Simulated scan of single mutants.
Amino acid sequence: MNFLSRRLVMPNDLNFAGSLFGGRILEWIDEEAYIYAACQLDAKSLVTKHIGAISFESSAYQGDVVEFGLGVKAAGKTSITLTCVVRNKQTKQTICVADDIVFVHIDPNTRKPLAHGKTKQDLDAIKIETPA
């Protein structure tokens, strides 16, 4: 799992109880997963097809820094399936896990699925620099 991106929990990210709003974290997961998939496939014409099991494990609060760990679970002919773990940067406590996030590579003109040309082995071999 590569932890590549971080966000600061701000006041407008909170729910009525003062913790990170679940909808906000799902928005962030979709965006972070798209960026990761686009970088892995070296393609930007991707659409979210599916987000499977989502498990909220703990809360995050204003001022917390959360980080996003992403990994490739599978690669199909036109799709890529990821797993995302969101955790507190300081404590390393898991906040949320989103599994089976599927993106489909599409032709930008026809919007039809298009082969991306990568295998799981190709994607596993990509070396990623992680921030300190």
Rank of each mutant, 00 (worst) to 15 (best):
I101F: 07
I80S: 04
N15A: 09
I29V: 15
F68W: 11
E32C: 04
E129C: 11
R7K: 15
D107K: 00
C84K: 07
C96V: 13
A125G: 05
L82V: 03
T110Y: 00
E129I: 14
V104W: 08
R111K: 15
I80G: 05
S45Q: 11
E129P: 07
F3A: 12
E67P: 01
G18Q: 01
N109R: 06
K120P: 09
L123N: 03
L8C: 04
G22M: 02
A43V: 04
R24I: 15
H50T: 12
F16P: 11
S55T: 13
K73G: 03
G71E: 14
A75G: 01
E129F: 11
C39L: 13
Q40F: 01
L8V: 08
D107P: 00
F103M: 07
N109V: 11
L114V: 06
L8S: 06
G23N: 05
E129V: 14
A115M: 02
C39Q: 15
V9K: 05
S55P: 08
R87W: 01
M1S: 13
E67S: 04
D64P: 03
K44M: 12
L82W: 04
T130L: 15
G76V: 02
G63V: 05
G23S: 06
G117N: 03
F3R: 14
N88H: 14
N15W: 01
F68Q: 03
G52W: 08
L20G: 02
L114G: 02
S58T: 06
R24E: 08
G71H: 10
V9D: 03
G23P: 08
T130V: 15
D30W: 05
A74D: 13
N2I: 12
D107W: 02
E31L: 14
I25E: 00
Y34A: 11
A132P: 14
T81E: 12
G23L: 10
R87P: 02
L46R: 07
T91N: 04
D64A: 03
L14C: 00
V72K: 10
Q121V: 14
D100Y: 05
L123R: 01
G18E: 01
I128D: 02
V102L: 03
D13E: 08
L14F: 00
G117T: 04
S59N: 14
S19K: 14
I126E: 08
K120C: 10
K112T: 11
D99R: 08
A38F: 04
S79P: 09
L114I: 05
T91K: 04
V86G: 00
T130W: 10
F16Q: 13
G23Q: 06
A37N: 06
G63K: 06
K120E: 13
N12W: 12
F21V: 07
Y34Q: 12
E129W: 10
E67D: 05
G22C: 02
L41F: 00
T78L: 01
A125T: 02
S55M: 10
L26A: 07
M1H: 09
F56G: 09
H50Q: 12
E31C: 10
D122H: 10
